[in-house]
Every structure is written in C-alpha cells, then in structure tokens.
Nucleic acid binder design. Structure first.
Lengths: 200, 200
DNA sequence: CCTACCGATCGGTAGG
DNA sequence: CCTACCGATCGGTAGG
C-alpha cells in the first residue's frame, strides 16, 4: 500500500515496471517455457523481490497470458494493417507476399513475445492455453481466407489443397524463429523466397 | 536388490518395465515439456512408486535423453533406410518425395517420442540439450545433401537458396505434428502435397 | 515495493 | 520394487 499513497506521481514508474516485468518474463518464457520460468527468476532480472511482482500482477498465469497474447496480437495487427493498406491493384500474389513479410517482420520485432507464445503453450495451465488458443485462431483465420483466395486464383502449386498449403505456410513461418538470426539475410528477401516456394 | 536375486528370470519383465516407463515419459514430455513432467506422474502411469523409477534409470535426465534421442534416431533410421533402398533409377524428385514420406511416417509412428524431442528441448537442462543437439544435427545433415542436390538439379523453385528451402522444408515437416490427425488424410498423400510445394 | 513465511511439491537417497 | 524421508524450491499470502 505504501507505494500507492502518491499514485498520480508514480504511475509512469509503475507502467515502466509492468513492462519491464513482461519483457523479462517474455525472455524467460521463450527460452524455458511456462513451468521452468519462476517468479523469482523474473523478479531477479527486474531487480525486485518475487513477492513484489504481486504489486503489478495477480498471478503467474496473468503474466504468461499477457505476454503470449500480446505476442500473437502484434502479429495479427501487423498483418491486418499491411493487407488493409495494400493498393486496390494488388493481386493475390502481392497480398500473400505482403502478409508473409509482415508476419516475419512482426515475429522478429517482438521475437521474445511471439516465441514465448509458442514455447510456453505446451506446458501452460489450461486457462492460459484456452485464452492463447482464441488469440491464435483469430490470427489463423486471416490465413484461411488468404490461402483460399490464392488457391481459387490458381496461383498455388497444382494438386495441393488449400488446407495443406496453409498449414505448410504456417509451419515454414512459425519455425523460422528457431533458426533466423538478424544478420543472416534481410527479412524481406526471406519473405520473397518463402512466397516463391508457396506460389507460382 | 530383491528384484535382482533372480535376474535371469526377471530380465524380460525389467525390459518391459523400462519400455513402459519410457512410453509414459514420452507421452508426458510431449504434452508438458521437461520441467512439468514429474517422476511421480510417470510412475503413476506405470503403476509404481516414484522412487522405484531409480531401479530402472539413474535420473530424470537419463529418461528424457533416452526418449528424445530415440525419437530423433528413429526418424534418421527410417529416412536413411528409405533412401538407401531406392532404385538406382530414382531421380532427385523421387528421392526428396521418398524422404518426406519416410520422415512423416516415422514422425507419426513414434509421435510421442518425436514430439517429445521437440517440445522438451526448450526447457531441458544443458546436458540433455547438448546430447539432443548432436542427434538433431546428424539427422539434418541428410537434408543438407538432399536439398543441395535438388537445387543443383534445378528441381526447386527459382531464386530460392538451398538453405532457405531446407529450413522451409523442415519447418513444414516438423510443424505437422501440431495439426496432423490420423484419419485426416493418408501420410503418403500429404507427402506428395509437400513435395509438390517444394519441387517443380 | 519489502521481510518473513507457509503449504505443496519436486528430484533424489537410505535402507530394505 | 517398496516405505520413509530430506533439502531445495515453488507460487502465493500476511502485514507493513
């Protein structure tokens, strides 16, 4: 309660601490998963005591859910905005290529959060998983429409169903944080190569 | 020690218990990762006490390493054998398609072990990770040669480097346990579709 | 945001 | 393969 007496003044500091906790949690959740990430680890990285985390969050589950869902939502927002701002003249090939680039850029820009969303999903408790699943599904629905359109337009490999192509695409994309390192090659170049694999 | 007095007679039973423990561990490691999988959970599934696991294994790390490395090695063996038994007349397209099918079949046949190898890698302790990395690298070297050959033969999408194509292929393949369910479609059909995406 | 602490649970050991 | 147990560590609470 002491920290709340001058709430107005300390609000920016609290917000900063909240983000610092989430950043530290994202880094740890990404590399260790849910169970292996302890509140004491997170607190130590931020420079506070474990119990003090409860001044900012209600539970470990709240922290993990926030990190994981923000990660997925950032990618959703990036891809949605990119597709919306494409000129009307853009064909389906342009749309798919732009979506791939936006996805990869968002994945890399917030890589701790987005990777945490994937790595922690397996061993997170049910309430965290269920929330995460909803955010995932919302994002994946973008790709359902996009790949359906591409297949209907005849822009994809012959004999490959829309569903297989979409799952192949998401596999390629979501596996990339396992190996992509910044200096390796530009993300836009990588996006162009991925598009060349999926389209023709 | 009581269990060892008549060692000759009880050996098959011990071997069975050992495999039962590994099977239970694989199932749990796959769905929960390393840290969240407890020796008590494993023991309960097998119908023994947690302490009795130490009659069969020296540590939790030994169990996890065995599961994870057997999973990767099964895939390695399956793909290696398939490529070796291909007729001399088989072209590079046939070789890649056969390797994809062998990989997917092995992945699905021992899905608890192979998925455990991927899901537990993130939060396993260093000794377990390092051993797992060696097995992975040995397997991936098959794909380095295979995809290099395919690119050199001009059988792949133009403008896509051998490295990107290999990482895209492994991403597609290794992501499939996330969504593949047995009745969905035959694995050979899926392999043909994956090959159609990667080759032309 | 802190100190002090709790009940639960973990991997592992002793000894049979 | 069992009972009994240990030290360490966890998420979380009390109270300030």
């Amino acid at each position: 309660m002491a920290g709340r007496t001058n709430k107005k003044v300390s609000e920016p500091i609290e917000a900063k601490s909240r983000r610092e906790i989430l950043d530290a949690a994202a880094r740890l959740l990404r590399s260790q998963g849910y169970k292996a990430t302890t509140l004491r680890d997170i607190a130590e990285e931020v420079g506070i005591r474990a119990a003090s985390i409860y001044y900012h969050f209600e539970s470990k589950e709240e922290i993990a859910s926030t990190v994981m869902n923000e990660g997925v939502d950032w990618v959703f927002d990036a891809v949605t905005a990119t597709l919306q701002h494409l000129p009307a003249s853009a064909g389906i090939n342009d749309r798919v290529t732009a979506a791939i680039a936006a996805h990869l850029n968002a994945l890399h820009k917030h890589s701790d959060y987005t990777s945490a969303a994937m790595k922690s999903y397996a061993d997170a408790p049910d309430p965290v998983r269920q929330l995460a699943r909803e955010h995932r599904r919302r994002y994946e629905s973008i790709w359902v429409r996009l790949i359906d359109d591409a297949v209907a337009a005849g822009a994809t490999p012959p004999g490959v169903s829309s569903e297989t192509l979409r799952l192949a695409a998401l596999g390629m994309l979501n596996w990339s944080p396992e190996w992509y390192r910044a200096g390796r090659q530009s993300i836009d170049r990588l996006a162009a190569e991925f598009a060349a694999i999926l389209l023709r």
